[in-house]
Design a protein around this nucleic acid. Structure first.
Lengths: 250, 250
DNA sequence: GGTAGTAACTGGTCTAGATGACTTGACCAG
DNA sequence: CTGGTCAAGTCATCTAGACCAGTTACTACC
């Protein structure tokens, strides 16, 4: 039936080994072991090693340079405004994402939330109030609303570890969305949770995510501005699989 | 030396054949020829075909479904994240954009500016300090730096009304760039210009714009957060080469 | 000293197979 | 009609090599 030997796949072993190297030992510009060395170390063929490296190159973690080697990519924190989950974003930055659920349950849609989700006011919503961590440091306070009618049984087994994983499992992966971003002052509750002083600036991000025509998630987050910077690439040419030129100096 | 037989590489031939199919004959959800059929048609091995298909999957052009086939991916909503310019943003809200030049001239590149523009510290830069208005109300304080060597005579006829128009006239239209966004506190100068209290939150946006490989503009802006919200349409990230769950609906 | 060549690395492309996992449809038994 | 089995087709993973192309360092020659 459900064979989840995922992690026993050889290329994933190699990939995760490399990812571990990058986040723990290496710095941008450092070379990773050559493909042939990895073949030997893991007892796999070169194509398998290349598959592992490919995955990390596509992710922007590594960069290949023909004739010289493969290097840890500079933190051009390609992490973008994409509809990636917080966990994905932090993982890409080499941090460990954590989350603490402060509250969860069903609520009736307030007018502003209803409008954002394009549902009728008073409709039943799933509400999550969470505190997000990066490397055990509080990073953001987040409120998330999801239309309950589209997610039956969402809270039945406790709070899902990841909203996006849960949406994925239901085939409701968002394909587009929009963020609005502004700066604000931390209120008392946010300040306490984020361990900053009330009135200090926070980056507020409201996100609407859609699956096809229907809104599936609306969230409001307040990020500590001293620890979080948003990167937005603007109209960048398609990087494709082809290797990019290099700037770092190993 | 420079061998650009690029297009004679087999996997590129296969890739471009598939790309042609997608744009000319097939519609989203349609299956492309199976990998083994492509092997036969082009007389190449399966790995080569997979390399071609991989490239298109990474680009988001195709989607693989194990056991069923490979299909044309549904159209992307918006390939790139795109930030509206200040003027566009104001127009969208039915406001009139204005600008006042506070200072202009030549400066030597400070280390941080030099790094952002990828020039040597101390290199000559054109510097503009401007205050931006929306409906005659101050909205943002902006510093802009441009490499003087690439823009001879830029300030000779006074301050250009629009930096972008001037760049356009010289064929130096930026084709890509990146913004970093965070929240900060207004310093005294900013507060005075924006007519807010010092320490109040401002949205800080740093923008680097590139023409080809060379940086052409670097700017830092501080926006009044009580009057300005950034709006960012977001597209879904490209699926990685690696794990795929079902999404296609042929 | 400088220069050209060369050897030993690196990643880039490619072959010709193998096995496994998943989906679909045809077929058969209840 | 329903449910199960089975085969054929698909993509997923993997092997053990091959040669090409770019980079670097060292060496031998001028």
């Amino acid at each position: 039936m459900l064979s989840l030997r995922r992690s026993t796949l050889k290329y994933l072993q190699v990939r995760d080994y490399l990812r571990g190297l990058v986040v723990s030992e290496l710095r941008p510009g450092d070379p990773v072991p050559s493909e042939r060395m990895l073949c030997e170390r893991f007892g796999v063929s070169r194509m398998t090693v290349r598959q592992a490296v490919d995955a990390l190159v596509v992710e922007g973690v590594l960069e290949r340079v023909q004739g010289r080697g493969t290097f840890v990519a500079p933190p051009k924190v390609d992490l973008q405004v994409r509809l990636a989950s917080f966990t994905e974003e932090m993982t890409r930055r080499g941090m460990t994402a954590g989350v603490k659920v402060l509250a969860s349950g069903f609520v009736r849609a307030e007018p502003d939330i209803a409008e954002a989700l394009k549902v009728a006011p008073g409709e039943e919503l799933i509400h999550l109030h969470r505190l997000r961590f990066a490397d055990d440091e509080p990073m953001a306070v987040e409120h998330t609303w999801l239309p309950a009618v589209r997610l039956p049984g969402f809270l039945d087994d406790g709070i899902p570890a990841s909203v996006y994983v849960e949406l994925d499992a239901r085939g409701l992966v968002p394909d587009w969305g929009e963020d609005t971003i502004d700066a604000g002052e931390a209120d008392h509750e946010e300040a306490k949770l984020l361990m900053i002083k009330p009135g200090k600036p926070v980056l507020r991000i409201s996100r609407r995510a859609f699956t096809g025509d229907a809104a599936i998630e609306y969230s409001r987050s307040a990020f500590r501005s001293d620890r979080y910077t948003l990167w937005v690439p603007v109209a960048r040419p398609n990087p494709s699989v082809v290797p990019r030129r290099r700037t770092a100096t190993p």
